[in-house]
Computed example of a mutant assay.
Amino acid sequence: MFNIRNTAENCISCDKCISECLFLQQFGAPYKIAKKCLASAQSYDEAAINSYHCSECSLCSAVCPVDAQPFKMFEALRRHAQEKKLFGLDQYSPLLNYERIGGIFPFKDNILPEGCKTAFFPGCTLPALFPVATRAVYSTLKQRVPSLGLILNCCSKPSKMLGCYEPHTEAISKLSQFIETNGITKIITACPNCHMTFKEFSPSFKITSIYEELLSLNISIMNTPWLKEVTVHDPCVTRFESELQESIRILLTKSGVSLIEMDHSREKTICCGEGGAVGFHNRDFAQAWKSKRIAEAEQTGVPIVTYCAGCTNFLSSAKPVAHILDLLFVKRNKIPQLPRFPFNYFNRLNIRFSARLT
């Protein structure tokens, strides 16, 4: 578990993180928060409760010049809040139910052909919002790797994000054990949250993104992208994944799409507003992040493309946003409207049924 003393001893109060973050502007510098936590149990508990105003986007750690890792502190504070039962999660029930449903029948499934060593793990939200793109990518991969498997399940990132480490560890351990027991040596992820959740668990099998895999297999994109110029929104969860970020840009440029970068991109990207599920607790903070992201994108004068279905969904309420897999694998003439409940759930079921028939 992260030691909060690390932030207390290393933060130099340069205020670089504060200048970027509404949460820190309201609740104080990481150094002060850490010192208060170490000073008294009451202050520690108060900081743990306040951590649910944080988007957990890790921008504070990205701009920190001394590696004080304030993000790790806020992550630890949420864990403390749940271990001590300081903060109820009733308002997060829609998110936790979404996680629970993703791990049970009929949404959960494992399609593992004979000799399967590699499996595609698309996550929950991509099949729900972009079923055609999900099927197209899976089909394309199977042409190169006939024994490719498909695992439909939830990585339990919401529980981890909210500080519920015991249920998260139990779920990701069970999932990883299943993968290992079935002799799978590589998982191809399509969701940034799934990608990082697996990587941080450090399983024995290899974790690679669909974007890196497409480049590695030298798969040509047959469709002509229906956007010719875009700006890329990097999900905050993968802000330190430079190879993944570069893979996205190479795929786009190889497909004939020109890029205009925003001021905050790659490691310095800013949250779409959905991070940390802060919108369930502090809607104003979530909306402020969304507005900031949209404002930067509009300065480029071109449409937004991202590789996170969750970011696509959250930002789309303010401005149409394309998902890179939809852009590269589905024939369209404009950014589509996203399906809503219950159609998003039907889409997930259709992915399962159609994969069973192929």
Rank of each mutant, 00 (worst) to 15 (best):
K206G: 00
T208K: 07
I210Q: 02
E213V: 08
L215Q: 06
N218T: 11
N218F: 05
S220A: 14
I221A: 09
P225I: 13
W226T: 08
K228N: 10
V230L: 06
V230N: 02
T231I: 09
T231A: 02
H233E: 00
H233Q: 08
D234I: 04
D234T: 06
D234C: 01
D234G: 00
P235Q: 05
P235S: 02
C236N: 03
V237H: 02
V237G: 00
V237D: 00
T238C: 02
R239V: 03
Q245F: 06
Q245D: 00
S247G: 02
S247H: 05
I248V: 13
I250K: 10
I250P: 14
L251D: 03
L252I: 13
T253A: 04
K254L: 07
K254F: 06
K254V: 05
S255G: 04
G256A: 09
G256Y: 11
V257G: 02
S258M: 10
L259C: 07
L259I: 15
E261V: 03
M262V: 12
D263V: 15
H264S: 15
E267T: 12
T269A: 01
C272W: 14
C272D: 04
C272A: 12
C272V: 14
G273I: 14
E274Q: 15
V278L: 06
G279D: 04
F280L: 13
F280Y: 15
F280D: 00
N282K: 15
N282D: 08
N282S: 10
